[in-house]
Write a protein that binds this DNA or RNA. Structure first.
Length: 123
DNA sequence: ATTCTGACA
DNA sequence: TGTCAGGA
């Protein structure tokens, strides 16, 4: 699929998709006419990125997450130390995501409180 | 019609 | 991140 299709399917602007390519976060293949092309794997990664983004992950952090994820998914080349490393990083990632999730829950609670305080002021 | 790169009231 | 320009 081309940028436009990708952008539409993951609900990001084509500008953002282009940006991720430029920054090397999610490189696109190129067509003979130099159009960006994306496959199924790219779509899956883009969806992962879209979930990471609202959690406040930086581009570099997303890069690490994607690398970790396909290292884990990869068909296998890795010694014992390597596998152990992956596992540690995976556990650390889970903790990180959970922490960000909790933060969002707090913000949600804050929004609810604000709404509650506005209620009595409304007509 | 769609995408490409580069630039920025 | 949006948008415009100038090409392909």
């Amino acid at each position: 699929m081309t940028v436009g299709e990708m952008a539409e399917r993951v609900n990001l602007s084509h500008r953002t998709v282009r940006y991720y390519d430029d920054e090397g976060l999610l490189p696109a293949r190129r067509s003979p006419g130099n159009y960006r092309l994306y496959g199924q794997d790219a779509l899956a990664k883009m969806l992962t990125i879209r979930r990471l983004k609202p959690l406040g992950f930086t581009l570099d952090e997303m890069r690490e997450v994607l690398a970790l994820l396909d290292a884990v998914a990869a068909p296998g080349a890795a010694d014992d130390a390597g596998r152990a490393e992956r596992l540690e990083q995976l556990v650390a990632l889970e903790a990180d995501v959970r922490q960000r999730r909790d933060k969002l829950v707090e913000q949600l609670a804050g929004a609810d409180d604000l709404l509650a305080s506005l209620r009595p002021l409304l007509p």
